Simulated scan of single mutants.
Amino acid sequence: MKNNVILPIFVALTLTACGPGKPSAGVEKPHAEAVRPAETGPDYDSVGVISSLEGRVLTLDHEGASKAGLPAGRDGFIAYADVLAEAPITPGARVTFRFRRSSDGLELTALKAR
């Protein structure tokens, strides 16, 4: 009879003693890395032909954009996954695209087959 009373009390005390406890003073929570806000500015339209894609840089032979001060030629544009997701990215594909100037260079904001 004593074992039936003492054993559950012992188990309950043992389990409460094994709790997570208080964190030590030296442990800090990791800080989230700051995300750079999206740059806003005017978008410009143009047409061109895909030359190559290397990493995040999509090289286009394009007709230029006079409003952006970009003469016709070959330029590398920073392309993010959301822009490339549904676009043709094979060399030689004819495309229409939108871009903006940023501190990193020319960024694609839209890319579609034409």
Rank of each mutant, 00 (worst) to 15 (best):
P71A: 10
P71C: 01
P71V: 03
P71G: 06
P71K: 07
A72P: 00
A72M: 05
A72Y: 01
G73R: 06
G73Y: 00
G73H: 01
G73V: 00
R74S: 05
R74N: 09
R74Y: 08
R74I: 11
R74E: 09
R74V: 14
R74P: 12
R74D: 00
D75A: 12
D75K: 10
D75Y: 15
G76E: 09
G76F: 01
F77C: 07
F77I: 04
F77M: 00
I78S: 09
I78C: 06
I78M: 14
I78K: 13
I78Q: 10
A79P: 04
A79G: 01
A79V: 10
A79I: 08
Y80C: 01
Y80G: 02
A81Q: 08
A81Y: 13
A81G: 02
A81R: 10
A81H: 09
A81I: 09
A81F: 11
A81S: 08
D82N: 13
D82C: 02
D82I: 00
V83P: 02
V83K: 01
L84D: 07
L84R: 07
L84H: 07
L84W: 01
A85T: 14
A85N: 03
A85C: 08
A85E: 11
E86W: 03
E86Q: 11
E86T: 05
A87T: 07
A87Y: 06
A87Q: 05
A87G: 05
A87K: 05
A87P: 10
P88L: 05
I89F: 06
T90N: 06
T90M: 04
T90K: 13
T90L: 04
T90D: 10
T90V: 09
P91M: 09
P91R: 08
G92W: 08
G92A: 03
G92C: 02
A93K: 00
A93E: 03
A93H: 05
A93D: 13
A93G: 02
A93T: 01
A93Q: 10
R94W: 07
R94L: 07
V95Q: 03
V95L: 05
V95G: 11
V95R: 02
T96I: 15
T96P: 13
T96Y: 15
F97H: 02
F97I: 15
R98Q: 15
R98C: 11
F99L: 00
F99S: 12
F99P: 11
F99E: 08
F99K: 00
F99R: 00
R100P: 07
R100A: 05
R100D: 02
R100K: 13
R101L: 03
R101M: 02
R101Y: 11
S102K: 07
S102A: 12
S103T: 15
S103V: 02
D104T: 01
D104A: 12
D104S: 04
G105M: 04
G105E: 06
G105W: 08
L106Q: 11
L106F: 15
L106G: 08
E107L: 14
E107S: 09
E107N: 12
L108K: 04
L108C: 00
L108F: 06
L108Q: 06
T109F: 08
T109Y: 11
T109C: 04
T109K: 11
A110D: 13
A110P: 03
A110N: 07
A110E: 14
A110R: 15
L111F: 07
L111N: 10
L111K: 03
L111I: 12
K112W: 12
A113P: 12
A113M: 15
A113N: 13
R114D: 14
R114Q: 14
R114A: 11
R114H: 12
